[in-house]
Structures are given as structure tokens and as C-alpha cells.
Amino acid sequence: MERTETPADLAPWVEYHWTLAWDLPEHTAYPSAVIPHPACNLTVEHGAARAAAGGEVVLVTGVTTRRFEVEVTGSGWVHGVKLRPGGLVALTGADARAWVDRTAPAAELLPRGVLDVLAGLAPGTPAADATKVAAAAVRPLVPETVDPAHNRLLHLVEAMLGDRTLLRVDDVAERHGLSRRALERLFARYVGVGPKWVLARYRMHDVVTVLDSGYDGSMADLAAAHGWYDQAHFARDFTALVGVPPSSYRRA
């Protein structure tokens, strides 16, 4: 797995690029799971053999509300463009809600010229070279004028990610001078899920980071510090997204 930075001119829409390559012995499977982010991915996949691909290699995966799981076998190579929250909508005009928990051929959204460039990426292409090609393919999608609503969304998401004191949707709305309804409409339009879900996912990433750093306090305190006031609810959310209860994750 290798990450590469996106060119500066694409940064308002693309967060980074990632390249994944694998080569496993016969009869060996590797389960891979990722805690979801409120973002879409544009991928070129060789060897992943996902049923949703329909034989195509260029795919779009919308915001995933569940833990993203895939079983890796054989050999393969994937180059991905991780878009910023709302990036898919800002670049293509897509309905974000129609892509939640969905992977489909990118031909549903992207013009043929973009698809042809991406489909030309061959397995084994060095990550830096693949990033240059993918960036060149995405660049024609950039709108001629700035979308102020998308800019506002990015500002809100940056605050939600960086300010750990924001634990409730009402906190975000009040901090930024918006009504809760206006905030929810903005997220529904550009992300496809509500601000409450986004806050919960970011705080869950924080929880996992704290546990990884060797946290030895009570789970009740950990849950409360990150916005869960019901420990049972926290345990259910953690298990659904990480795959095991928080206490088992810490022991492991």
C-alpha cells in the first residue's frame, strides 16, 4: 500500500492517491477491512474481481456507511483517487445519495475520454506515475467556477475533523452560524449522509487511534470523551465498524 500526494491544483477535490498491490500464494486469502470515511473513491482495479465491476476496471465507490471489507486473493493491482467529501458531486454533479454504499462502473458518471485515460493504467505502474496519469484524467472534470457550497462543506468538515470539542450536530451548526436543517441539507447534497454520521465516524477514528496508543482507562470514559453517553451504544457502533468489541480490540 502506498499513498501519493495529489497535485496542488486538484487539492480542493482530491485528498490523495493510493496504490495497492498484492501477490499471494495459491489457496491463500487475506481479509482486508477499512473504517469508512465520508468520501468517495475513483479506482482502477486489476485482479480485484469485485462483482459490482461488471467486467469494467474503472469504478466509483460512494460513501460507505459500513465497514468496507474485501477478501484479497491471487495477485492484483489497484490505483485509487480518494476524493474529498463532496468531491464527486462537485466534479460530476452526481447525486451523492444515489452512491451511498454502492460501487459501480465509472462509465455511469464519467465521460469516455476520462475513462479511456484511466483504463490505460496497467498493473505494476509505479505509484508516482499512476498518480500523474490519474490526475491528468481527472483534471478536465474540474469546474470553471468555484462552488461556494462545496467550499463551505469542506470548511465544515475540516472543523469537524480538527476540533475534538465538536461532539454534536448542534455544536457544529451553532459554531458556524447555520441552522441544523441547513447543515443537514448541505451534507445530504454533497456527501449523501448526514452530519451526525460524519461526526460519529471521525470520533470513531479518534477512538481507534487512542486505543492504538495504549489507552488503559475505562471504556465508559473513552466513550463519553468522544461523544457517546451510552456505553452500550458505543460498543455496538464500535463493533459494527471495527469488527470486534472495543475491549477485545484493546486486548489484541
Results as ranks from 00 to 15, higher is better:
Glu2Val: 02
Thr4Asn: 01
Ala11Ile: 01
Pro12Asn: 03
Val14Ile: 09
Trp18Lys: 09
Trp18Phe: 13
Thr19Ala: 03
Leu20Thr: 09
Trp22His: 13
Asp23Met: 00
Leu24Val: 02
Leu24Glu: 05
His27Ala: 14
Tyr30Phe: 06
Ile35Phe: 04
His37Gln: 15
Thr43Asn: 01
Thr43Leu: 00
His46Ser: 08
His46Trp: 09
His46Asp: 03
Ala52Phe: 05
Leu59Val: 05
Val63Pro: 13
Thr65Ile: 04
Thr65Arg: 15
Glu69Met: 10
Glu69His: 10
Glu69Ser: 12
Glu69Pro: 02
Val70Ala: 13
Val72Met: 01
Ser75Cys: 01
Leu83Asp: 02
Gly87Trp: 10
Val89Asp: 10
Gly93Ala: 03
Val100Gln: 05
Asp101Trp: 05
Asp101Glu: 06
Thr103Asp: 02
Ala106Ser: 13
Leu110Arg: 13
Leu110Ala: 09
Leu110Ser: 11
Val114Asp: 05
Val114Leu: 04
Leu115His: 08
Leu118Arg: 06
Leu121Trp: 00
Pro123Val: 00
Ala128Cys: 05
Lys132Thr: 01
Ala136Gly: 11
Ala137Asn: 07
Arg139Ser: 07
Asp147Cys: 05
Asn151Val: 04
Asn151Asp: 11
Arg152Met: 01
Leu153Phe: 08
Leu154Val: 11
His155Trp: 07
Arg164His: 12
Thr165Tyr: 14
Leu167Trp: 04
Val169Pro: 04
Asp171Phe: 00
Arg175Leu: 05
Arg175His: 07
His176Pro: 06
His176Gln: 09
Ser179Met: 01
Arg180Leu: 04
Arg185Phe: 04
Leu186Asn: 07
Leu186Lys: 10
Ala188Ser: 14
Arg189Tyr: 02
Tyr190Asp: 05
Val191Gly: 13
Val191Asn: 14
Trp197Cys: 05
Leu199Ala: 14
Leu199Gly: 15
Tyr202Ile: 04
Arg203Met: 15
Asp206Ile: 05
Val207Ser: 14
Val208Met: 12
Leu211Gly: 13
Leu211Trp: 11
Asp212Tyr: 03
Asp216Lys: 11
Met219Phe: 10
Ala220Tyr: 09
Ala220Leu: 06
Ala220Gly: 14
Ala223Gln: 08
Ala223Gly: 11
Ala223Glu: 07
Trp228Ile: 02
Asp230Ala: 03
Asp237Trp: 11
Phe238Thr: 15
Val242Gln: 10
Pro245Lys: 11
Pro246Asp: 08
Ser247Glu: 14
Tyr249Glu: 05
Arg250Cys: 13
Arg251Ser: 13
Ala252Thr: 06
